[in-house]
Design a protein around this nucleic acid. Structure first.
Lengths: 151, 151
DNA sequence: GTAAGTTGATATTTATAAATATCAATTTTC
DNA sequence: GAAAATTGATATTTATAAATATCAACTTAC
């Protein structure tokens, strides 16, 4: 437990500039920026706005690539799937917060694509949030849904 | 209640041959058969294997069209989304049945794409099942997820 | 201080999912 | 019983999502 937490943490250190990330993933720098623009991942940014990628960023993007290339799910499809993650449940949002949150009402964007001022998670950085980190593919999301219904 | 049930029922009468359905939907006969082959809907079939479409079939396919054309979700994306419907919960499946059911374990196909011999719903026709009928789009599926977590 | 890398924004190309077309064999309609 | 419609299977076309390319301005590395 402790170990896995620590591992996770160390896997999220900003290590690679975009060119290295692109080589590791065998895709172009442009494609990476497109995925970011589409809200599929959130890289570190230096003050100068240069991106930095961690190991777990790389893993995340590998997962996204699989969805696109093997499962033939379009980017908008991936976004729609992410939008189904019941973040309000994971973060134990208060009704008050939840009820004014687009992540609760909409179903086209992942929660981390929305501004969240005034919400329960306004002080949390999305890239450190377990909603963002733990449900990177359809299987994990389905497992989450299973635990909900098991309650 | 009674009224809406009856309405639903009457909306599901096999009325139109495929050519009429195609005209109503403003798509080609071929496209309709493709959607069927992809598991997006289940039409009536006569003994001669000719298809017949009901009003609710038309509505269902309109919804699918919207997902493809407006939301730009690929067919595989739609299938993946349908695969997230917690049918085992809707149908109150016994654990025994659920645990050997691909609809519970997989996440690429809607439940109605699988054979379901030996499962709790083996005697139910999918096209009459509320899993198939009530969760035709992302919004409805998200609402279902909300009710699960509300339990 | 200069060469290499990165930024965002926009335009262009390409890969392929989605839609059509074609076929001979059945079925339906009137 | 002849014309029109439908079937499944396969091949082809098209529409467009995804990936690249180009740009001048700005960082970074040595």
């Amino acid at each position: 437990m402790q170990t896995s937490k620590m591992l996770e943490f160390s896997d999220d250190k900003p290590l690679f500039p975009i060119s290295t990330a692109a080589k590791l993933l065998d895709i172009s720098v442009h494609t990476l920026r497109m995925y970011e623009r589409e809200g599929l991942f959130i890289p570190f940014k230096k003050k100068s706005s240069q991106r930095l990628f961690s190991k777990s960023d790389i893993e995340r993007i590998e997962c996204i690539r699989k969805a696109i290339k093997e499962s033939k799910i379009s980017i908008n499809g991936i976004r729609a799937i992410y939008s189904l993650i019941p973040c309000w449940e994971i973060k134990h949002c208060a009704k008050k917060s939840r009820d004014k949150c687009p992540a609760y009402w909409e179903h086209t964007q992942p929660c981390w694509s929305y501004k969240h001022e005034g919400n329960d998670c306004e002080n949390q950085k999305c890239r450190e949030c377990n909603v963002y980190n733990d449900y990177t593919d359809c299987g994990k999301i389905k497992n989450l849904i299973k635990t909900l219904s098991g309650k």
